[in-house]
Amino acid sequence: MRLKIDKLTKSYGDLTVLDKLDLEIKDINSLVLIGPSGGGKTTLLRLLAGLEQPDSGSIIVNDHNLDCTEEELLTYRRDVGMVYQAYNLFPHLDALENIMLPLVHAQQIPKKEAREQALSLLERFNLAEHAFKKPVALSGGQQQRIAICRAVAIKPEILFFDEPTSALDPEYTSEVLDLIEELREDTMELILVTHEMGFAHNAADHVLFISDGGIIAQGPPSELFEQTKNERVKRFFDKVLKYN
């Protein structure tokens, strides 16, 4: 993927979440955003996913210039996938229908074809037995894996994850991370916000440490995790890795 961000600023009311953020990245497959809560990671992810419009500055993702109207952003969102912390499956639809919905109504794929695609995807990720269950009948891990299927089904150009394991019971974390890892090995382009440092270390081609509305440090995980000179990054790692 290719990202080019120029003087990106975003505020909510009086709170400036991102302040003149610059970034240029090329030729990576997976990007991981880490950093303390409230530092701006999720906002940056949402801007990259076309869910928010910047107050000022520009964002270019691959060939998409996100400095555009809401209608153009809608088209962009149909080309990318998003997975949320709280799974966000639609409660009135079963697993299969949840996956079919974006295929049929956003991608304009005929119903029959969409159904086959969704079923084969569930099959592939060992979720076929849950195809006709409503979200309420599924565990958190199963829901999240189905949410990932929903995002993958549209064959997205990039797949975004916003803390995909933070709401899960620890016993379900690994099944979700395994699935994301499988997608990464399939060369799916990923951008993740996560607190799973071990996973970030393994899965990231490039890591951004975001705090106070800007990028404090960045680099390949081996560099950032093991050799960082930055005091704030070090302190952060000391805290989050204390009990690991």
């Binding site: 996913a49 998003m82 949320y84 966000n88 639609f90 409660p91 919905l101 974006p102 109504h105």
Partner: peptide, 20 residues
């Protein structure tokens, strides 16, 4: 969150009301 998800999928407002 459901409206947000519908947005991220790329549903229009009308589609969101109709299907979600």
């Amino acid at each position: 969150t459901q409206l947000e998800t519908a947005r991220s999928i790329g549903l229009t407002k009308q589609q969101t009301y109709r299907h979600i």
